[in-house]
């Protein structure tokens, strides 16, 4: 099937089998390998990407379902000038990653929440709910929670925010 995805702002024309999973198409066809597959059953969240701004498990979506839609991956997180996203810097500052395999999923879940609702990082409970959506086996989660809180504060303090 011929489809067009807008991936990190670029239109990409693809010819894919209907059964191909969005995550595989991003990784293999678009060569965007920052989206990782940790369970392929929607549980771990390592494959989280944004589809039309909403965080989804890309292992539980068919690429053909996204025809004409906009997909954002971890590769599209930094600014146009290569400036790191505040979430990326906050994850580093708080040691919120070790092996880094689950990290893109946490970043994308967090960016979706913070962009949809800049207040999402403010209340502890909401950050907690966000962190509870994905699995990490290395960090014990607390550094991830701190990183999102830190980035949210940073984003809220931005001029024009």
């Amino acid at each position: 099937m011929k489809i067009t995805l807008t991936v990190n702002g670029d239109d990409v024309a693809l010819d894919v089998e209907p059964r191909r999973i969005l995550a595989d198409v991003l990784r293999e066809d678009c060569r965007l390998t920052g989206t990782h597959l940790g369970c392929e059953q929607g549980v771990c969240g390592a494959c989280t990407v944004l589809v039309d701004g909403e965080a989804v498990r890309s292992c539980l979506m068919l690429a053909v379902q996204c025809d004409g839609r906009s997909v954002r991956t971890v590769e599209g997180l930094s600014g146009a000038d290569g400036e790191p996203h505040p979430l990326q810097l906050a994850f580093s500052a708080e040691h919120a990653l070790q092996c880094g395999f689950c990290t893109p999923g946490f970043l994308m879940a967090a960016v979706a929440a913070l962009e949809a609702d800049p207040g999402a990082g403010a209340g502890d409970e909401r950050v907690r709910a966000l962190v509870e959506s994905n699995l990490c086996r290395c960090t014990g989660y607390e550094p991830i929670r701190r990183a999102i809180t830190r980035a949210a504060a940073r984003l809220a303090a931005r001029p024009g925010a």
Binding site: I21, E40, Q41, G42, R57, C59, M61, L62
Partner: peptide, 14 residues
């Protein structure tokens, strides 16, 4: 039928 797909695609993957 594919609606949300959160269980169907999981079962298809299995």
């Amino acid at each position: 039928v594919l609606a949300g797909g959160q269980s169907l695609i999981m079962e298809m993957r299995l």
